[in-house]
Design a protein around this nucleic acid. Sequence first.
DNA 1: CTATCTGTGGCACTCAGTGTCAAGCAGTGC
DNA 2: GCACTGCTTGACACTGAGTGCCACAGATAG
Lengths: 211, 211
Amino acid sequence: MNSRADSSLAERKRQLVADELRDAALMLLATKGFDVVTVDDIVAAAGMSRRTFFRYFASKEDVVVRFLADTSTDIITELAARPPAEPPSVALRHALWVPLAACNDHPEHSERARVVVRLILDTPALHARWLERQIEWRAELAAELAARRALDPRTDPYPLMAAGMALLALDAVLQRWQPGDDEQHLAELMDTAFAVVAPALDAPGAPPAAG
Amino acid sequence: MNSRADSSLAERKRQLVADELRDAALMLLATKGFDVVTVDDIVAAAGMSRRTFFRYFASKEDVVVRFLADTSTDIITELAARPPAEPPSVALRHALWVPLAACNDHPEHSERARVVVRLILDTPALHARWLERQIEWRAELAAELAARRALDPRTDPYPLMAAGMALLALDAVLQRWQPGDDEQHLAELMDTAFAVVAPALDAPGAPPAAG
DNA sequence: CTATCTGTGGCACTCAGTGTCAAGCAGTGC
DNA sequence: GCACTGCTTGACACTGAGTGCCACAGATAG
């Protein structure tokens, strides 16, 4: 009966190591800058070996991007859970609010998340990887949107572009995220951003094949 | 009076070397794949030294991305040249059509452009850099849009998001670009994509500060 | 106590990218 | 013809990211 407890213990040990590396990395990268900090610096601060770092993270960029990406896994689940009759703009707004809400639930993590967002937006290499990750979300969101409206993603550009517009709104919020902002202000930014794309998201539309 | 002719000659010599490098690189990368081809392979094929390659291109990704990016420098100029009264969706559609039109003007280059697009979309590292480049265009397009409508890009999210939506449309077209497509079909794809975002681009809008 | 399984560190290697320096090759003045 | 100048190139060495390989330490099962 140890098997289950054992795997859980091993899992927690792995998580502990990963967290230690991540914390050391974020601390150094955020304060000194992405380019000047080497992986050797990070593992020295974490008291581990270089080789171990690459067992937990695929690249130096991966540490930073995954910190945000992991908190955003649930956006698809949230979108799928929204009532089918809800307009796309509302459903997507709720889905993309999930990661921001997660930040606000833990104020001590929220500040770090904001700093990491700033680091990503200000570092070209990180920004590129961040966008690449968003491409995956876009595909998943698009699949869910297509299923909702019974559209064929291969012929109809709406699902992919609608998901892209929602992520555009998220980016607009992140870009305007200031040090003192509380949940209220973040929600306002989100509303303003979604107001811009809503006319396209909720347009009655003239699908090429459907009447 | 040689000074002007001389600099022109030197410029053309530089261009010749750059073209040689680029051709060898695209040939190898497109046929064998981005990851397996090393810079040494490329310079060996081009008959030049490794150091020379990095004098002309910032990175291995740069060769590929710049091939497309260079043809797209004129989108800002085109947008600025559109009549001010034109709806944003129309002006942006014309601006983003410029690089595609450039491809269609040279059918022999068009096929290679399509292959490079496919290579970029299928290679994560290249895709990331490509999106990073698009961020620059987005900022420039946004600046032009803001100037057109006398909006403040710092408070109003519309310019940046409108530019983002236009690029979303371009991406949709590139993603659907098939081997046999002629200019006519490309134009149809473009129209379909822009039809999706047009309601948001041309929305009367409720600017936060303006009545 | 021993066999085993897993995670870790150390080492060597490839490859991207950079700095530096010497050599080649115009054009220019004497 | 000869020195000088400016520009481009190639060669070498170096840092840093990322990977493969193997040997070692600790926990567990028999």
